[in-house]
Design a protein around this nucleic acid. Structure first.
Lengths: 209, 209
DNA sequence: ACCTGAACACCGTTCAAGT
DNA sequence: ACCTGAACACCGTTCAAGT
């Protein structure tokens, strides 16, 4: 009973999350430059000073949105990994494609997550944690490939950064519309990413069927 | 004589370029979030409305700064290419390293250049042109490698985007401090980029010395 | 042609005050 | 504890007016 009431306490109940949701909404509608604390507050139907009860700063709201995005991304990657527990190459491909799919479906949030809008100086502990978790996820998948000779590399951490960087870079170019349109008519982003990844994959030796 | 006087016409002479320079200065000092038209004007010693005589918009000043950056980058890449006219692998490596070096030396401008701060809607013709020139430069170098069997790829344009994307992504991760610090203590950004590129390079067949 | 000063709408942030 | 309204400093942008 207490739990049920909790979500309708004063004016809005869980204002904090409502603000995050509203922020994402504005982001999708108007882009990063259209995101202001005052508009977020208005969208939720609360005074422009109310957000300061939950976020000490605009930065903190932005960080919270980014955190939310990274958590979603983490979920998608985890799903992709779980879908191919035994086929490492497929698992890597699926992970990377999930990464790309997230960027396609949440373009504005994705941009925010990786734009330097978020000053790292202030702590934002949650954000740092979840970013680390995503990084770890990618590194585990890549490391496993290296261990089982699906990728040849001297250092798993090194190749992890390289592959992540590569995928990330291609997606960013896509997100920023910097990939020639003519090229995109023959290959989609997914294929582009797949082809890129395959440069790192060692051909599987044939076995008897 | 006329030409000499021209640069000291009314108050400041070439206010337009002075504003661009001042903008880059503020960018380096205070970052993108600290860049305001009013501060730029103040830094040049002119009223806050004066910039509107030369830029219709804040966007246009930002685009001009980006354009300036791309021109510099274009110059650096051209130098790198010219330095190794006959050794294709070295040429590619030098090009890519010049790209990375530019990002290291002009971090804030580099971020601006590739941040979506610049709305593509408005024309910014000069910017679009110079971006295309840089893209072409990279593609020429990569294409030449493909033609001479230094890279194996079905499509030069495709591999061009992939390599550009890769280098770009790794540099961006670096710029945003998202590469694990421990890794950076053993390899620098330049080595990272070099190792990454070498995955695409076909080993040169030995010839008789 | 190039620049100024006043004015307007919008923003982030603070703070005393209300329930 | 959670929210409001007034207030302040800072923005981008416009415009009539000055040289």
């Amino acid at each position: 009973m207490i739990l049920v009431m909790k979500s309708r306490s004063y004016h809005h109940g869980d204002l904090k999350n409502a603000l995050i949701e509203a922020g994402i909404g504005i982001l999708d509608d108007r882009g990063l430059s259209g995101l202001s604390l005052r508009k977020v507050a208005e969208r939720v139907g609360v005074s422009h000073a109310a957000p300061y009860a939950h976020f000490s700063d605009k930065q903190e709201l932005v960080a919270a949105i980014a955190t939310h995005g990274f958590r979603q991304l983490h979920g998608k990657l985890t799903e992709a990994i779980a879908a191919h527990p035994r086929r490492l190459r497929l698992q890597l491909l699926a992970t990377v494609k999930a990464y790309a799919a997230f960027a396609v479906e949440n373009t504005e949030t994705f941009k925010l997550m990786f734009s330097s809008t978020i000053e790292k100086e202030k702590e934002h502990e949650e954000l740092i944690t979840v970013v680390q978790e995503v990084t770890d996820l990618v590194n585990v998948v890549v490391s496993r490939c290296v261990d089982r000779d699906a990728i040849n590399a001297s250092s798993p951490e090194l190749i992890g950064v390289i592959i992540w960087g590569q995928v990330h870079g291609i997606i960013l170019l896509w997100v920023e519309n910097q990939i020639p349109g003519k090229l995109l008519k023959t290959v989609g982003l997914m294929q582009l990413v797949q082809i890129a990844i395959e440069y790192f994959l060692v051909k599987k030796r044939k076995r008897s069927t």
